[in-house]
Design a binder for these strands. Structure first.
Lengths: 159, 159
DNA sequence: TCGATCGTTCAGTATTGACTGAATGTTCCG
DNA sequence: CGGAACATTCAGTCAATACTGAACGATCGA
């Protein structure tokens, strides 16, 4: 791994960690986004990142569960091979509605908790809930437009 | 604070904490979203949340800097008064492009780090960069549409 | 100028949680 | 069946950090 590649991997670790994932998850995903060949074994990854096999095992579960990587097997080879899913970010953002829905759920429970208050007092939470409901619907729609645009670019003559 | 209100405050603490802020920041914002009266002093908040004044002081800096709360003074009163900014979430999401831009920056530095690779090898990062650039533009546009829709609802006859 | 009140700072503490590494379990080849 | 290579698990360690609380500084009224 060159210094520039190592810096990329480390940056990915910091960014993912700042959004609730573990640094190792960010590093591992980052590595799988740039490694050559694109399919690697757990031992390959552990050596590249200087991490223990236990950490790779646990992190692989997280990343696979979140849809960021794919784990495959080859016949006659007991090792597992990992690679970055090509459409990981698309499907993550397509489901981004869930994140906003979670916060909207809290707002709605807050409105129930304050149901005896005056309308003015509850405006703060009501506005929050309305905005979140809107974003929750529209963000997936953005991703679908992106995918449609790209599909049109790649087949402009209707082939 | 009723049990239901306390649960809301605690949930806000957990959600904000899971996205990189401190639990106290979530609790304090949550409290300012439901408290009565809506303006509170640091002592009020510390007592409601069972927190130290030092924690309130530091958290107030964070929340004010992020645009979630407003700190005001009244003449003849040396205490500071805090309240939740009504448009906090709107302005936060309007600037959400910055978050995607940050990740796009990492992807672009990764592409520089792998500039000697084959085009197929770099496809993973290029797709990531393109999608992020798209989302970076479109998410603020969503918020603007929400604000425009709401303005139209509130003045449907062009008053 | 003194005293009271409020905000800030910061060293110390306690907690969380990410990572390690050895032990365990499992699958495949000879 | 035995052994090797691999994945998983989990108790222990270490570092990061959120929070406390006392000390400090600033501001205002008397």
């Amino acid at each position: 791994m060159t210094p520039a590649e190592s810096e990329f991997v480390e940056e990915m670790g910091q960014i993912l960690a700042s959004y609730g994932m573990t640094p190792m998850a960010g590093r591992m995903w980052g590595w799988l986004l740039i490694c050559e060949p694109p399919e690697q074994t757990a031992a390959d990854i552990a050596e590249a990142l200087g991490a223990s096999r236990g950490a790779i095992s646990g992190t692989a579960r997280i990343l696979a569960g979140a849809g960021f990587i794919r784990r495959t097997m080859r016949r006659g080879d007991r090792r597992e091979w990992f690679n970055a899913k090509p459409d990981a970010l698309e499907s993550f953002l397509l489901n981004a509605g869930r994140i906003y829905a979670q916060l909207r759920g809290v707002a709605e429970r807050g409105l129930i908790a304050t149901s005896d208050r005056s309308p003015e007092s509850r405006e703060r939470l009501e506005e929050m809930r309305d905005l979140l409901a809107f974003v929750e619907r529209e963000v997936p729609a953005i991703i679908e437009r992106f995918l449609a645009d790209r599909a049109a670019e790649r087949a402009p003559l209707g082939s």
